[in-house]
Design a protein around this nucleic acid. Sequence first.
DNA 1: CTGGATCCCCTTGGATACTG
DNA 2: CAGTATCCAAGGGGATCCAG
Lengths: 149, 149
Amino acid sequence: MEESTFDAPSYCAGTEGEFDVANWDSRHDCDVRQILDRVADKWSLLVIALLERRSLRFTELKREIDGISQRMLTQTLRHLERDGLVRRTVYPVVPPRVDYDLTPLGASLHSTIKALVTWTEEHQREIAGARNQYDRRADDAALVAAARA
Amino acid sequence: MEESTFDAPSYCAGTEGEFDVANWDSRHDCDVRQILDRVADKWSLLVIALLERRSLRFTELKREIDGISQRMLTQTLRHLERDGLVRRTVYPVVPPRVDYDLTPLGASLHSTIKALVTWTEEHQREIAGARNQYDRRADDAALVAAARA
DNA sequence: CTGGATCCCCTTGGATACTG
DNA sequence: CAGTATCCAAGGGGATCCAG
Protein backbone atom coordinates (compact mmCIF):
# COMPACT_ATOMS: atom_id res chain seq x y z
CA MET A 1 0.00 0.00 0.00
CA GLU A 2 1.07 3.59 -0.20
CA GLU A 3 -0.83 5.78 2.23
CA SER A 4 -2.16 3.29 4.71
CA THR A 5 -1.47 4.93 8.03
CA PHE A 6 -3.89 7.77 8.45
CA ASP A 7 -6.60 6.07 10.48
CA ALA A 8 -8.36 9.38 10.88
CA PRO A 9 -9.81 10.58 14.18
CA SER A 10 -13.00 9.61 12.38
CA TYR A 11 -15.63 10.53 14.88
CA CYS A 12 -15.58 14.12 15.99
CA ALA A 13 -17.45 16.28 18.40
CA GLY A 14 -21.21 16.28 18.62
CA THR A 15 -23.47 13.50 17.48
CA GLU A 16 -25.14 13.95 14.15
CA GLY A 17 -28.38 15.89 13.93
CA GLU A 18 -27.17 19.01 15.64
CA PHE A 19 -25.00 19.84 12.71
CA ASP A 20 -24.01 23.45 12.21
CA VAL A 21 -22.11 24.89 9.32
CA ALA A 22 -20.30 27.20 11.70
CA ASN A 23 -18.50 24.17 13.05
CA TRP A 24 -16.77 23.14 9.87
CA ASP A 25 -13.67 24.81 11.11
CA SER A 26 -13.59 22.88 14.34
CA ARG A 27 -13.71 19.56 12.52
CA HIS A 28 -11.88 19.97 9.30
CA ASP A 29 -10.03 16.75 9.99
CA CYS A 30 -13.18 14.66 10.35
CA ASP A 31 -15.28 12.50 8.12
CA VAL A 32 -16.87 15.47 6.45
CA ARG A 33 -13.56 16.79 5.28
CA GLN A 34 -12.39 13.40 4.14
CA ILE A 35 -15.47 12.69 2.09
CA LEU A 36 -15.35 16.15 0.67
CA ASP A 37 -11.76 15.55 -0.35
CA ARG A 38 -12.75 12.33 -2.02
CA VAL A 39 -15.55 14.01 -3.90
CA ALA A 40 -13.35 16.93 -4.71
CA ASP A 41 -10.71 14.72 -6.20
CA LYS A 42 -10.23 15.38 -9.86
CA TRP A 43 -10.48 11.75 -10.89
CA SER A 44 -13.04 10.45 -8.42
CA LEU A 45 -15.67 12.71 -9.89
CA LEU A 46 -15.09 11.43 -13.39
CA VAL A 47 -15.07 7.81 -12.31
CA ILE A 48 -18.32 8.22 -10.44
CA ALA A 49 -19.91 10.04 -13.34
CA LEU A 50 -18.91 7.34 -15.78
CA LEU A 51 -19.95 4.46 -13.58
CA GLU A 52 -23.31 6.04 -13.06
CA ARG A 53 -24.15 5.17 -16.64
CA ARG A 54 -23.06 1.56 -16.57
CA SER A 55 -20.45 -0.71 -15.04
CA LEU A 56 -17.05 -0.59 -16.65
CA ARG A 57 -13.81 -2.53 -16.74
CA PHE A 58 -10.47 -1.14 -15.69
CA THR A 59 -9.27 -0.62 -19.23
CA GLU A 60 -12.54 0.93 -20.32
CA LEU A 61 -12.28 3.48 -17.55
CA LYS A 62 -8.69 4.21 -18.43
CA ARG A 63 -9.56 4.69 -22.07
CA GLU A 64 -12.62 6.84 -21.38
CA ILE A 65 -11.01 9.14 -18.87
CA ASP A 66 -8.02 9.91 -21.03
CA GLY A 67 -5.22 11.62 -19.24
CA ILE A 68 -5.33 9.49 -16.13
CA SER A 69 -2.39 7.25 -15.38
CA GLN A 70 -3.08 3.67 -14.41
CA ARG A 71 -1.50 4.45 -11.09
CA MET A 72 -4.05 7.14 -10.34
CA LEU A 73 -6.92 5.10 -11.68
CA THR A 74 -6.02 2.19 -9.44
CA GLN A 75 -5.61 4.47 -6.46
CA THR A 76 -8.86 6.27 -7.13
CA LEU A 77 -10.78 3.04 -7.51
CA ARG A 78 -9.30 1.65 -4.30
CA HIS A 79 -10.33 4.74 -2.38
CA LEU A 80 -13.84 4.68 -3.77
CA GLU A 81 -14.09 1.00 -3.05
CA ARG A 82 -12.89 1.46 0.49
CA ASP A 83 -15.50 4.11 1.09
CA GLY A 84 -18.19 1.80 -0.18
CA LEU A 85 -19.00 3.99 -3.16
CA VAL A 86 -17.80 1.60 -5.83
CA ARG A 87 -18.01 -2.16 -6.03
CA ARG A 88 -15.20 -4.23 -7.51
CA THR A 89 -16.03 -7.55 -9.08
CA VAL A 90 -13.28 -9.94 -10.09
CA TYR A 91 -13.93 -12.71 -12.59
CA PRO A 92 -11.36 -15.46 -12.15
CA VAL A 93 -10.66 -16.00 -15.81
CA VAL A 94 -7.70 -15.59 -18.09
CA PRO A 95 -7.12 -12.96 -19.11
CA PRO A 96 -8.29 -11.36 -15.85
CA ARG A 97 -11.50 -9.39 -15.91
CA VAL A 98 -12.53 -6.84 -13.28
CA ASP A 99 -15.74 -4.88 -13.34
CA TYR A 100 -16.49 -1.71 -11.43
CA ASP A 101 -19.89 -0.27 -10.72
CA LEU A 102 -21.52 2.13 -8.31
CA THR A 103 -23.03 0.92 -5.07
CA PRO A 104 -26.38 2.44 -4.04
CA LEU A 105 -24.38 4.70 -1.75
CA GLY A 106 -22.24 5.81 -4.64
CA ALA A 107 -25.30 6.45 -6.77
CA SER A 108 -26.87 8.61 -4.09
CA LEU A 109 -23.66 10.60 -3.81
CA HIS A 110 -23.68 11.10 -7.53
CA SER A 111 -27.09 12.67 -7.53
CA THR A 112 -26.02 14.98 -4.74
CA ILE A 113 -22.97 16.03 -6.66
CA LYS A 114 -25.10 16.81 -9.65
CA ALA A 115 -26.69 19.63 -7.71
CA LEU A 116 -23.30 21.23 -7.37
CA VAL A 117 -22.48 20.76 -11.00
CA THR A 118 -25.82 22.21 -11.94
CA TRP A 119 -25.08 25.24 -9.80
CA THR A 120 -21.81 25.70 -11.63
CA GLU A 121 -23.54 25.37 -14.96
CA GLU A 122 -26.06 27.99 -14.03
CA HIS A 123 -23.52 30.48 -12.78
CA GLN A 124 -20.53 29.99 -15.03
CA ARG A 125 -21.38 33.17 -16.88
CA GLU A 126 -21.39 35.23 -13.72
CA ILE A 127 -18.14 33.70 -12.61
CA ALA A 128 -16.46 34.23 -15.95
CA GLY A 129 -17.64 37.83 -15.85
CA ALA A 130 -16.29 38.34 -12.36
CA ARG A 131 -12.96 36.93 -13.44
CA ASN A 132 -12.69 39.21 -16.42
CA GLN A 133 -13.49 42.21 -14.29
CA TYR A 134 -10.98 41.18 -11.67
CA ASP A 135 -8.24 40.52 -14.18
CA ARG A 136 -8.85 43.78 -15.97
CA ARG A 137 -8.58 45.69 -12.74
CA ALA A 138 -5.46 43.76 -11.81
CA ASP A 139 -3.89 44.65 -15.15
CA ASP A 140 -4.74 48.30 -14.66
CA ALA A 141 -3.18 48.27 -11.23
CA ALA A 142 -0.05 46.68 -12.67
CA LEU A 143 0.17 49.37 -15.33
CA VAL A 144 -0.15 52.13 -12.78
CA ALA A 145 2.54 50.53 -10.66
CA ALA A 146 4.83 50.22 -13.66
CA ALA A 147 4.25 53.84 -14.62
CA ARG A 148 5.09 54.99 -11.13
CA ALA A 149 8.44 53.20 -11.34
CA MET B 1 1.96 36.87 -8.18
CA GLU B 2 2.63 33.21 -8.10
CA GLU B 3 0.29 31.23 -10.32
CA SER B 4 -0.85 33.85 -12.76
CA THR B 5 -0.47 32.10 -16.06
CA PHE B 6 -3.20 29.55 -16.33
CA ASP B 7 -5.75 31.52 -18.32
CA ALA B 8 -7.88 28.44 -18.66
CA PRO B 9 -9.50 27.48 -21.95
CA SER B 10 -12.54 28.68 -20.04
CA TYR B 11 -15.28 28.06 -22.50
CA CYS B 12 -15.59 24.52 -23.73
CA ALA B 13 -17.67 22.64 -26.17
CA GLY B 14 -21.44 22.89 -26.26
CA THR B 15 -23.46 25.78 -25.06
CA GLU B 16 -25.10 25.44 -21.68
CA GLY B 17 -28.50 23.82 -21.43
CA GLU B 18 -27.62 20.61 -23.17
CA PHE B 19 -25.52 19.53 -20.24
CA ASP B 20 -24.87 15.85 -19.78
CA VAL B 21 -23.05 14.23 -16.92
CA ALA B 22 -21.50 11.81 -19.36
CA ASN B 23 -19.49 14.69 -20.74
CA TRP B 24 -17.60 15.53 -17.59
CA ASP B 25 -14.68 13.64 -18.94
CA SER B 26 -14.55 15.58 -22.16
CA ARG B 27 -14.35 18.90 -20.36
CA HIS B 28 -12.45 18.32 -17.19
CA ASP B 29 -10.42 21.43 -17.91
CA CYS B 30 -13.44 23.70 -18.18
CA ASP B 31 -15.30 26.00 -15.90
CA VAL B 32 -17.07 23.18 -14.16
CA ARG B 33 -13.84 21.57 -13.12
CA GLN B 34 -12.35 24.83 -12.03
CA ILE B 35 -15.26 25.79 -9.86
CA LEU B 36 -15.37 22.31 -8.47
CA ASP B 37 -11.71 22.59 -7.58
CA ARG B 38 -12.33 25.92 -5.92
CA VAL B 39 -15.19 24.55 -3.89
CA ALA B 40 -13.28 21.41 -3.14
CA ASP B 41 -10.37 23.37 -1.78
CA LYS B 42 -9.77 22.66 1.86
CA TRP B 43 -9.64 26.31 2.89
CA SER B 44 -12.19 27.81 0.51
CA LEU B 45 -14.92 25.79 2.13
CA LEU B 46 -14.06 27.05 5.58
CA VAL B 47 -13.78 30.64 4.48
CA ILE B 48 -17.16 30.51 2.77
CA ALA B 49 -18.74 28.85 5.76
CA LEU B 50 -17.40 31.47 8.13
CA LEU B 51 -18.29 34.42 5.96
CA GLU B 52 -21.79 33.14 5.60
CA ARG B 53 -22.40 34.09 9.22
CA ARG B 54 -21.00 37.58 9.07
CA SER B 55 -18.29 39.61 7.40
CA LEU B 56 -14.82 39.22 8.85
CA ARG B 57 -11.44 40.89 8.76
CA PHE B 58 -8.29 39.20 7.56
CA THR B 59 -6.96 38.56 11.03
CA GLU B 60 -10.30 37.35 12.29
CA LEU B 61 -10.42 34.76 9.54
CA LYS B 62 -6.86 33.71 10.25
CA ARG B 63 -7.61 33.33 13.93
CA GLU B 64 -10.86 31.45 13.42
CA ILE B 65 -9.59 29.01 10.86
CA ASP B 66 -6.58 27.98 12.89
CA GLY B 67 -4.01 26.01 11.00
CA ILE B 68 -4.07 28.13 7.88
CA SER B 69 -0.98 30.11 6.98
CA GLN B 70 -1.38 33.74 6.00
CA ARG B 71 -0.05 32.76 2.63
CA MET B 72 -2.87 30.30 2.03
CA LEU B 73 -5.48 32.61 3.46
CA THR B 74 -4.44 35.41 1.15
CA GLN B 75 -4.35 33.10 -1.81
CA THR B 76 -7.73 31.61 -0.99
CA LEU B 77 -9.33 35.00 -0.55
CA ARG B 78 -7.88 36.25 -3.82
CA HIS B 79 -9.28 33.27 -5.67
CA LEU B 80 -12.69 33.62 -4.13
CA GLU B 81 -12.69 37.31 -4.86
CA ARG B 82 -11.67 36.74 -8.45
CA ASP B 83 -14.53 34.31 -8.91
CA GLY B 84 -16.97 36.84 -7.53
CA LEU B 85 -17.80 34.75 -4.50
CA VAL B 86 -16.29 37.04 -1.90
CA ARG B 87 -16.17 40.80 -1.72
CA ARG B 88 -13.12 42.62 -0.40
CA THR B 89 -13.59 46.02 1.16
CA VAL B 90 -10.62 48.18 2.02
CA TYR B 91 -10.94 51.03 4.51
CA PRO B 92 -8.20 53.59 3.91
CA VAL B 93 -7.34 54.09 7.53
CA VAL B 94 -4.36 53.48 9.75
CA PRO B 95 -3.96 50.81 10.80
CA PRO B 96 -5.33 49.25 7.61
CA ARG B 97 -8.68 47.53 7.77
CA VAL B 98 -10.00 45.06 5.21
CA ASP B 99 -13.34 43.36 5.43
CA TYR B 100 -14.43 40.25 3.60
CA ASP B 101 -17.96 39.10 3.05
CA LEU B 102 -19.91 36.84 0.73
CA THR B 103 -21.46 38.16 -2.42
CA PRO B 104 -24.98 36.94 -3.29
CA LEU B 105 -23.29 34.51 -5.65
CA GLY B 106 -21.12 33.23 -2.84
CA ALA B 107 -24.12 32.85 -0.59
CA SER B 108 -25.99 30.83 -3.18
CA LEU B 109 -22.99 28.58 -3.59
CA HIS B 110 -22.86 28.09 0.13
CA SER B 111 -26.38 26.79 0.29
CA THR B 112 -25.62 24.40 -2.54
CA ILE B 113 -22.56 23.10 -0.77
CA LYS B 114 -24.59 22.50 2.32
CA ALA B 115 -26.48 19.79 0.47
CA LEU B 116 -23.24 17.94 -0.05
CA VAL B 117 -22.20 18.34 3.54
CA THR B 118 -25.59 17.14 4.66
CA TRP B 119 -25.20 14.07 2.49
CA THR B 120 -21.89 13.36 4.15
CA GLU B 121 -23.44 13.79 7.55
CA GLU B 122 -26.22 11.38 6.75
CA HIS B 123 -23.95 8.71 5.37
CA GLN B 124 -20.83 8.91 7.47
CA ARG B 125 -21.87 5.82 9.36
CA GLU B 126 -22.19 3.77 6.20
CA ILE B 127 -18.87 5.03 4.95
CA ALA B 128 -17.09 4.33 8.20
CA GLY B 129 -18.58 0.85 8.14
CA ALA B 130 -17.45 0.24 4.60
CA ARG B 131 -13.97 1.35 5.53
CA ASN B 132 -13.78 -0.95 8.49
CA GLN B 133 -14.93 -3.86 6.41
CA TYR B 134 -12.45 -3.05 3.68
CA ASP B 135 -9.56 -2.65 6.07
CA ARG B 136 -10.39 -5.85 7.88
CA ARG B 137 -10.45 -7.78 4.64
CA ALA B 138 -7.19 -6.17 3.59
CA ASP B 139 -5.58 -7.20 6.86
CA ASP B 140 -6.79 -10.75 6.42
CA ALA B 141 -5.36 -10.87 2.93
CA ALA B 142 -2.05 -9.61 4.24
CA LEU B 143 -1.99 -12.29 6.91
CA VAL B 144 -2.69 -15.02 4.40
CA ALA B 145 0.05 -13.71 2.16
CA ALA B 146 2.48 -13.62 5.06
CA ALA B 147 1.58 -17.17 6.07
CA ARG B 148 2.13 -18.44 2.57
CA ALA B 149 5.64 -16.99 2.61
C1' DC C 1 -5.70 -7.55 -18.67
C1' DT C 2 -5.12 -5.76 -14.07
C1' DG C 3 -2.51 -3.99 -11.37
C1' DG C 4 2.04 -3.59 -7.89
C1' DA C 5 6.79 -1.41 -7.24
C1' DT C 6 10.20 2.32 -8.35
C1' DC C 7 12.23 6.37 -9.76
C1' DC C 8 11.87 11.15 -9.92
C1' DC C 9 10.21 15.59 -11.03
C1' DC C 10 7.60 19.43 -9.80
C1' DT C 11 3.94 21.48 -7.59
C1' DT C 12 1.85 22.73 -3.09
C1' DG C 13 2.16 24.79 0.92
C1' DG C 14 4.51 25.96 5.60
C1' DA C 15 7.99 29.07 7.84
C1' DT C 16 10.18 33.23 7.96
C1' DA C 17 11.45 37.94 7.02
C1' DC C 18 10.22 42.34 5.06
C1' DT C 19 6.92 46.47 3.60
C1' DG C 20 3.15 50.10 3.45
C1' DC D 1 -2.99 45.24 10.40
C1' DA D 2 -2.68 43.25 5.96
C1' DG D 3 -0.31 41.57 3.10
C1' DT D 4 4.26 40.41 -0.31
C1' DA D 5 8.63 37.94 -1.32
C1' DT D 6 11.78 33.95 -0.61
C1' DC D 7 13.36 29.72 0.67
C1' DC D 8 12.67 24.99 1.27
C1' DA D 9 10.70 20.31 2.56
C1' DA D 10 7.08 16.85 1.80
C1' DG D 11 4.04 14.64 -1.10
C1' DG D 12 1.39 14.01 -5.36
C1' DG D 13 1.45 12.10 -9.46
C1' DG D 14 3.53 10.68 -14.20
C1' DA D 15 6.55 7.26 -16.56
C1' DT D 16 8.33 2.88 -16.64
C1' DC D 17 9.19 -1.83 -15.66
C1' DC D 18 7.55 -6.06 -13.82
C1' DA D 19 4.21 -9.85 -12.11
C1' DG D 20 0.01 -12.91 -11.78
